[in-house]
């Protein structure tokens, strides 16, 4: 059975660190970084990338549209 592997790419400088993506993720991939971006926001990042299934939930609830989602089928 093919397995789905996903990954997200966060536009770090545009992320406002609101954290709305965190509860939206069904596999607990995302956390806010301890570091801040140029505007002082703790941006979102993949703390647990192995678990990402590329479901796009985080991206569609992101008010600032800063998350791009990628997905591959792994045989």
């Amino acid at each position: 059975m093919a397995k789905i592997k996903g990954a997200i790419e966060v536009d770090v400088e545009k992320c406002k660190g609101c954290g709305v993506c965190i509860p939206a993720c069904p596999t607990d991939v995302i956390l806010l970084a301890k570091n801040v971006n140029g505007k002082g926001y703790h941006y979102a990042y993949m703390e647990n990338p192995e678990a990402c299934i590329g479901c796009v939930n985080c991206a569609i609830v992101c008010p600032d549209g800063v998350i791009s989602v990628y997905k591959v089928k792994v045989a």
């Binding site: 796009v56 549209g65 800063v66 791009s68 989602v69 990628y70 997905k71």
Partner: peptide, 8 residues
Amino acid sequence: ENLVYKRT
């Protein structure tokens, strides 16, 4: 080629 979502 693996992109499934990005901002419009």
